[in-house]
Design a protein around this nucleic acid. Structure first.
Lengths: 180, 180
DNA sequence: GTCTATAACACGATAGAC
DNA sequence: GTCTATCGTGTTATAGAC
């Protein structure tokens, strides 16, 4: 399972090769990110793929542009995971839906730690949209902040599902207080 | 008003000069941070202060070490501001204390925006300690997440004291539910 | 212990020639 | 698209002055 957005079916072969290259570049970037160290070396990515730095630069004009693309992909796939768990529990009681979405969030974050860390501080509107559906527009940001805090703690420590669930319960009580 | 930790009274003149230098370095770093741009240039700080890069490196071995020091100072001064407002309202009713602390938090964040942003994600134990005093150990993290969410929203939008107070009230109700 | 000078390295960014 | 040269940056290291 990847944390990248799969490209849509392309029209011609040329376009397809370009889409594949974009995917490969981002994939290599994530790989390098996952391998450790803090960095994300533009040069190393180019070398790994066997393309020139200039080629890389043609598609991603700067290192920040590459990271931006990774962030956008991350937000999209995270939001998809959340929405999927929301859809699957369409007819379930509210608490179950909350639990499902919260765990989807946590699972994605823990499964793609470095990618998730990249998302911190970024505008995550698609993600907020899912929370807004569950808790209302005003509470979406609070929910996000709360989940983020809970997940970040588990990144450094050992995951503790019981504790996580308790925190989610607190969060639900808070935002229920909003709408009630 | 600065957002840096003022050095304690030093013993000799030598030690005093060092403390002043450390202060000046961090002050210059914050200045450069405040001036805009994304960066925080190690070289530029040295140039601005008229000290050699090697000197800077002697006290702060890496750029990250400097940032780390800024974060530590930020957490400390933020916590001091919170504790101060807590102490000043020692004999006041609970709601007033909450309001004082929440506003102290918000004021510091809005007054030192870039410095505050630096603190996001960092371990802020001294800050949590104040919240724990107000709301109990278990609720401290939730309070922090809630206040953070409220403040971050105001960073991009216009500050709205009425709305902020309403959010704090929600937060208080939540954590009162804990202890009651 | 504090500070300076200097060199060397890897990296990201940019511009121009082909 | 590609290559090359050049720049500014963070970082490491060494040697020495006060």
């Amino acid at each position: 399972m990847t944390s990248l957005v799969l490209p849509p079916e392309p029209h011609g072969r040329r376009e397809r090769r370009v889409q594949e290259l974009l995917f490969d570049i981002k994939d290599a970037a994530l790989d390098q990110l996952a391998e450790g160290g803090d960095g994300l070396s533009y040069r190393a990515i180019a070398a790994r793929l066997g393309v020139s730095r200039a080629t890389l630069r043609y598609h991603f004009p700067s290192r920040d542009a590459l990271i931006e693309a990774l962030v956008a992909d991350g937000v999209t796939t995270l939001a998809r995971a959340l929405r999927s768990s929301l859809d699957r529990t369409r007819s379930a009681p509210s608490e179950r839906r909350w639990r499902a979405v919260a765990h989807a969030y946590r699972d994605w974050a823990l499964r793609h730690r470095r990618h998730y860390r990249l998302l911190a501080g970024a505008r995550a509107d698609p993600v907020l949209a899912v929370f807004a559906e569950l808790a209302g527009d005003d509470a979406a940001l609070t929910v996000h902040a709360g989940l983020h805090a809970a997940v970040v703690r588990e990144m450094d420590a050992r995951p503790d599902t019981e504790r996580f669930d308790a925190e989610v319960l607190d969060l639900v009580r808070l935002v229920d207080g909003y709408t009630a």
